[in-house]
Amino acid sequence: MLLNEKNAVIYGGGGAIGGAVARAFAREGARVFLAGRHLEPLEKVARDIRANGGLAESALLDATNGQAVDDHANDVAATAGSLDISMNVIQHGDVQGKPMVDMYVEDYLRPVSTAVQTMFLTSRAAARHMMQQRSGVILAFGGSGNPSPGLWLGGLITAFEAMEAMRRQLAVELGPHGIRVVTLRSGGIPESLPPDMEGRQDVANSIVDATLLRRAATLEEVGNAAAFAASDKAGSMTAATLNISAGALMDR
């Protein structure tokens, strides 16, 4: 198995993306620590993992609270013996569906400040343990790319670009300590869209229409790609992006 005896923390592990990644990590042998602000979604994912023979634990956590993040990372490392993988896929509170000229500045900036804050805090907490181990992987997730006409994403693209800048800086600083930092780039995952989202089918169609393969990545494919990126099979991959956009995002 790709991640046998690895310990992984997934912030936002109760969501669609986080849950898919957690299940894939567990299938590949990792012990998964799910963290988020709502216990029931976390426990649902954990129950699924345990039912299939995997190891999963849940914890209530606000990933924008530095002390809480540090305490949780310390507990994971003390309990499991190491912290090998960290991935943050919490929601950023973005407002979509409005052109920028009709937005409040607070709504535009919220996902940017949240993304930067939480990525900084969770990456810092993980890196402090990984530096002692001389190994580890920090994964980011985003859809950084050119905005599409008619698809109003508010501050989301700006947030993704900020996270990419942080990923490059982290990779440079942490590389000498044996720590890899990789981003999974997606042009959107239709399965992850909220069922009650206004215009959900139109958004899903726009995601598919932007691809070269005429289909978007599935949640299972996201999980599989994350498991590969976190594994020793990708041991030479850092300061890099793994493009899982089905061609929607051209490599730069």
Rank of each mutant, 00 (worst) to 15 (best):
M87N: 00
N88R: 04
I90N: 03
Q91S: 14
H92N: 12
G93N: 07
G93T: 10
Q96T: 14
Q96S: 08
G97A: 02
G97S: 03
K98P: 03
P99K: 09
M100I: 15
M100L: 15
M100E: 01
V101Q: 06
D102F: 09
M103Q: 14
M103R: 02
Y104Q: 15
V105T: 13
E106T: 15
E106C: 06
E106S: 15
E106V: 14
D107C: 04
D107A: 13
L109I: 13
L109N: 08
P111M: 08
P111W: 14
P111D: 13
V112S: 00
V112Q: 00
V112P: 00
T114N: 11
A115N: 03
A115C: 11
V116H: 02
Q117D: 10
F120H: 13
R124K: 15
A125Q: 05
A127E: 03
H129G: 09
M130Y: 10
M131D: 07
M131H: 09
Q133H: 02
Q133D: 01
R134N: 14
G136Y: 07
G136E: 04
V137T: 15
V137F: 11
I138T: 10
L139H: 08
A140W: 04
F141H: 13
G142P: 03
G143L: 08
S144E: 12
S144G: 13
G145S: 14
G145V: 04
G145W: 00
N146W: 02
S148Q: 14
S148L: 13
S148R: 15
S148H: 12
P149E: 00
P149K: 00
P149I: 00
